[in-house]
């Protein structure tokens, strides 16, 4: 039970951190707050960096140093993928019209 809670806590911290990090980027902030003209608050970015780092604490308590660090790295990947999914859903809701314009960077590799 305690193991599950610690894992969950780490997962929540990491996901929340990545959510804030995504919001600290103008294009995602505008999706969520289309009617507010100001940009994303400045605290979002540092908070977005710190929280995924803090997520290491519960897993280190749960699994010790070696297993904990491996688990932390894996958890960060999963939470980041979740946020990619969330951003995708937000983008879909906002419509795709303005996205095509950003396609100019596409070049041949």
């Amino acid at each position: 039970m305690q193991d599950t809670l610690l894992l969950f806590a780490a997962f929540v911290l990491a996901t929340l951190g990545f959510a804030l990090l995504a919001l600290s980027q103008k294009q995602h902030w505008r999706r969520l707050r289309p009617h507010i003209s100001t940009g994303p608050p400045r605290w979002l970015r540092p908070a977005g960096w710190v929280l995924p780092g803090l997520a290491a604490v519960p897993v280190l308590i749960r699994d010790g140093l070696a297993f904990g660090l491996l688990l932390w790295a894996g958890l960060l990947t999963v939470s980041a993928i979740l946020i990619v999914g969330a951003v995708l859903v937000l983008d879909k809701r906002a419509g795709k019209s303005d996205m095509e314009t950003r396609d100019a960077s596409l070049t041949e590799r």
Binding site: F18, A22, L106
Partner: peptide, 30 residues
């Protein structure tokens, strides 16, 4: 800038490149 970005747009190679970048960057430590 593209850390959380997956663009599903008309050009399929945009999506392919975004998927390539995401699967590479997000699981880079692994």
């Amino acid at each position: 800038a593209d850390f959380f970005t997956l663009r599903i747009v008309r050009k399929p190679q945009r999506t392919t490149l975004d998927l390539h970048n995401l699967s590479g960057v997000l699981a880079l430590p692994f």
